[in-house]
Design a protein around this nucleic acid. Structure first.
Length: 355
DNA sequence: AAAGCGGGGGC
DNA sequence: GCCCCAGCTTT
């Protein structure tokens, strides 16, 4: 495939882009750590958190993790439950499990030293092609082609790529590789992503401020938001379930732990009638759910997961004794919970207070 | 190759 | 409401 840009043009594009990045990039805590090549731990941690997650959502979690687990050894030696607790609300909880596994491997098998090659990084739990490349470029300042959602969009617009994703991924990767910069891999990788995140955005790209708009085919055609093209997705199915707030007279509540695989792996939850694909789990205390009725007065939580919408109806019940392993107090010792269950708990505790 | 996996923010 | 996000693992 002949590349539409000459080496001279590529060099100019890189210069404009890198200059823009140096003047305009947002400060990010993991970029300010000195000697990332000697200690890639902060960048690795941040990159795992940044998988399918925006910078703004990650920053507070990153700060708390670095405070609590300053080294890979501290993370490796922490109980999984502690890590899940700190991860609570960030989503994609499998990442927290893989983070722990990776930290234990690096701490125990590699004496705390992360691999310095792409293939070495790729072999670690939770690190795929993208994360291995971004660590090579931004921690070690080594040439690597980084293609995330931002880069896909920038490249698709720059070359007006008509093929829809994900089929266009190999072509996009090829173009991204030919634009990449062996003189300054760290700045280049960060700059393309920063451009996609701040100017070359999905909805309203700020082309007048863009340092490389003069090279951009989509800008020339005045239709940047036509790219990247994508296959249209199906509408999400809707499901309903009923959850129970079971209390005793001391104000304890009944929680149970989910399986270690699948949706919301190993997080705790109020007992409920079952989410899609959940293995059937009996309700404790021979509880039965009322027939689901509209506007019957009980609290209702709306929540959306990746693959379905959920309407969660809430009921309450009081029992004499909650088994020790299921007994928790909302103000004292809650285990790691999903955002859905935090919402439900919050809502139903408010309702109980009002007589 | 496709499916499974959260949550939040922009519009 | 719909779309997107510094993707990886499993099947």
């Amino acid at each position: 495939m002949p590349h539409p840009m000459s080496p001279t043009q590529i060099s100019k594009l890189q210069h404009h882009l890198h200059h823009w990045y140096n003047q305009n990039h947002r400060p990010m805590p993991w970029r300010e750590i000195p000697n990332p090549a000697q200690n890639p731990y902060p960048i690795w941690l941040a990159e795992i958190m940044l998988q399918q997650t925006t910078v703004a959502a990650v920053i507070p979690y990153y700060q708390r993790f670095m405070q609590t687990f300053p080294t890979v050894h501290a993370l490796a030696n922490a109980p999984l439950a502690t890590i899940l607790h700190h991860w609570q609300g960030l989503g994609y909880y499998r990442r927290a499990h893989l983070l722990h596994q990776c930290a234990q491997y690096v701490s125990q098998q590699l004496n705390g030293t992360f691999p310095t090659t792409h293939s070495g990084l790729l072999a670690l739990p939770g690190i795929g092609p993208y994360t291995a490349s971004v660590i090579m470029a931004t921690a070690y300042n080594q040439p690597a082609t980084v293609v995330d959602g931002n880069v896909e969009r920038v490249i698709a617009r720059l070359f007006a790529i008509a093929t829809p994703l994900p089929k266009a991924k190999p072509t996009i990767t090829k173009h991204a590789a030919q634009l990449s910069c062996h003189q300054n891999p760290r700045i280049h990788a960060n700059a393309v992503m920063e451009l996609g995140a701040t100017l070359c955005t999905p909805q309203s790209p700020k082309c007048p401020q863009c340092p490389i708009s003069t090279f951009c085919k989509a800008y020339k055609a005045k239709n940047p938001t036509n790219y990247p093209k994508k296959i249209t997705k199906k509408t999400l199915p809707r499901h309903q379930a009923t959850a129970f707030l079971i209390t005793d007279k001391q104000g304890n509540i009944y929680l149970r732990q989910r399986p270690t695989k699948g949706l919301l792996a190993s997080l705790w939850e109020l007992p409920h009638t079952g989410l899609p694909k959940d293995p059937p789990t009996p309700l404790p205390f021979n509880l039965t759910s009322h027939p689901v009725t509209r506007s019957s007065g009980h609290p209702v939580i709306q929540h959306t997961f990746t693959h379905f919408h959920l309407t969660l109806h809430l009921q309450t019940a009081q029992v004499q004794t909650i088994p020790k392993e299921n007994r928790f107090h909302p103000q004292k010792n809650l285990p790691p919970l999903s955002t859905l269950m935090l919402k439900a708990l919050k809502q139903v505790l408010i309702t109980l207070k009002k007589p």
